[in-house]
Design a protein around this nucleic acid. Structure first.
Length: 494
RNA sequence: GGGUCGAUAGCUCAAUGGUAGAGCAGCGUCCUUUUAAGUCGUUGGUUCUGGGUUCGAAUCCCAGUCGACCCA
């Protein structure tokens, strides 16, 4: 290795390959080795009894993330899914030969298994004194730098495995997402909801207004689209007598990518027969307060979480305001007769409020621009915005005392729409008329097979959608949807 | 789609038209309770790609690739 022409000491990849070759030449191949851990790191540490050093023997395994060699003894740390645990290697315990293998053949990033007894160091860290170790995977590439971690966003997203090895906050945030989804499943199952799976490949993209991805099935020689919602399939199950159903499913929308949008995202949709939008209020409030209580667990025992974007605390334990969409518009415009104004007056007023209005928009779209730009971002505390204009969604029941609105709410938290819910339209004739009356960007494709299902009879029901990614942004304090999705969509790399 | 910013050693970053550097990692020493361990020495560059300007380009100009942010 000291020959000038073959010096590879500057090339970490080559050095590691050489170490692997030397191990194999000595009769040991790490890629044919394995280990049977008895505990994960945190569970192992929990076994330690104060004052009883070397009483408990464990086998743990993980990736080498710190390496501190000091002559005849060394401290290293490995990391598994529960986090790091410190190991103590000693020449006088392992013997000259094995200690030499430890020092010469192992690198940061390697995966090892060790067996040894728990003790507490003089600085108070519970540590495994290693009696035996096995290299079970040689990392041929070096880890990013230990102190600054990994900060290049492109590597963080494209090589997420490096991010979650190096950045504890990323690891914690993405694990929280798993716990959130798990909590939602258990919460709904405890209330007799049935989880179902419906097709991703659809003949018609229904249930929402969005551009779909298109694909083709060769054997059927038919074009398909990827679903943009699960709503119409789940309602068919209500027709079929599955009275409480939900799906946590991937949705695909062929639209822009931004801090708030990924082309594929996860949506919970839940439908409950013999309920309505008011029943959904109770359901979502219980779901979110238990989520904060059991998963996020605010340190002070409250149900408050910090909302970085607004600098405010969001209190899930406070009163959840309920307010009609029209009242919010009247309040924001300062015009009690807003909905009676002409389109020209609406445009003038909206532009005076600093909005840029497309003259081709329908009147409800002008009004909704005010809602999404001027009102929604200010709704930080949990707020049920109710009774939206009927043009915004064709799938809900018309309000009994106001034929221009529908029996729905949009739950808004932290300035973001988190969960829309409806009293679901189950009159097949009204449903058909509402589909046909759709206009502007809200226009949905008509799914005739769905209308056929409605004619067979769907029980009255409440339904709700929850954007899981946005909920995770809110609850984990993430800045971007990319930070709560393991592998966010990027342009294919070079 | 438009605008702004960015890409330099494995990673995190310097170098403001004049010899491309540092810390960590790596390699070679010393070190048996460390916590970004310490210590002495040391290797390592297609400065994103392709053109152009210039005596001379990481640096200036043009085009492209990828990313971030803002806007639509």
């Amino acid at each position: 290795m000291s020959d000038l022409h073959s010096d590879i000491s500057h090339d970490q990849h080559a050095v590691r390959r050489q170490k692997l070759a030397e191990l194999r030449a000595a009769g040991f191949d790490p890629f044919r080795a394995n280990v049977t851990p008895t505990h994960f790191s945190a569970d192992a540490k929990a076994l330690y009894v104060e004052g009883q050093d070397y009483a408990q023997v464990v086998t743990v395994a993980g990736r080498l993330v710190t390496f501190r060699v000091q002559g005849g003894s060394s401290f290293v740390k490995i990391q598994d899914q529960q986090g790091p645990i410190q190991l103590y290697f000693r020449r006088d315990v392992l013997g000259e030969e094995r200690y030499g293998v430890f020092k010469k053949s192992l690198d940061l990033g390697d995966i090892i298994g060790v067996t040894g007894a728990l003790f507490k160091t003089k600085t108070g860290e519970i540590t495994v004194r290693v009696d035996a170790f096995t290299l079970v995977c040689k990392a041929l590439r070096p880890l990013p730098e230990k102190f600054h971690g990994l900060s290049d966003p492109e590597i963080i997203y494209r090589q997420r495995y490096l991010d979650v090895i190096m950045n504890a906050e990323s690891r914690a945030r993405l694990m929280t997402r798993s716990r959130i989804v798990s909590h939602i499943r258990r919460f709904l199952e405890a209330q007799s909801f049935i989880e179902v799976e419906t097709p991703v490949l659809e003949a018609t993209a229904g249930g929402a207004a969005a551009r779909p991805f298109k694909t083709h099935h060769n054997a059927l020689n038919a074009d398909f689209v990827l679903r943009i919602a699960t709503e119409l399939r789940l309602k068919r199950m209500l027709v079929g007598g599955f009275d409480r159903v939900f799906e946590i499913g991937r949705i695909f929308r062929n639209e822009g990518v931004s801090r708030r949008h990924n082309p594929e995202f996860t949506m919970l949709e839940v439908y409950q027969a013999y309920s309505d939008y008011r029943g959904m209020m109770t359901l979502i409030r219980d779901m979110l307060t238990t989520l904060v209580r059991d998963v996020i667990k605010p340190a002070d025992g409250s149900l408050k979480i910090m909302h970085a974007a607004s600098g405010q605390e969001i209190d899930f334990g406070g009163e959840w305001r309920e307010v009609k969409y029209k009242d919010l518009i009247r309040e924001a415009t300062g015009d009690a007769d807003w909905f009676a104004r002409s389109k020209a007056d609406k445009i003038a007023k909206a532009e005076a409020m600093g909005l840029s209005i497309n003259p081709a928009w329908e009147e409800f779209e002008i009004t909704n621009e005010i809602f999404s730009k001027q009102i929604e971002p200010t709704l930080i505390q949990p707020t049920f915005v109710t009774h939206l204009p009927k043009e915004l969604c064709p799938l809900a029941k018309i309000t009994a005392d106001d034929p221009t609105t529908i029996d729905v709410f949009e739950l808004t938290i932290g300035g973001m729409e988190v969960a829309p819910a409806y009293s679901e339209q189950n009159d097949p004739d009204v449903q058909r008329q509402m589909f046909e009356a759709q206009a502007g960007e809200e226009k949905q494709n008509i799914d005739h097979d769905f209308l056929l299902a409605l004619e067979h009879g769907m029980p009255p029901a409440g339904g709700m959608g929850v954007g899981i990614d946005r909920l995770c942004i809110l609850l984990t304090g993430a800045e971007s949807i990319r930070d709560v999705i393991l592998f966010p969509q990027l342009r294919p790399g070079a």
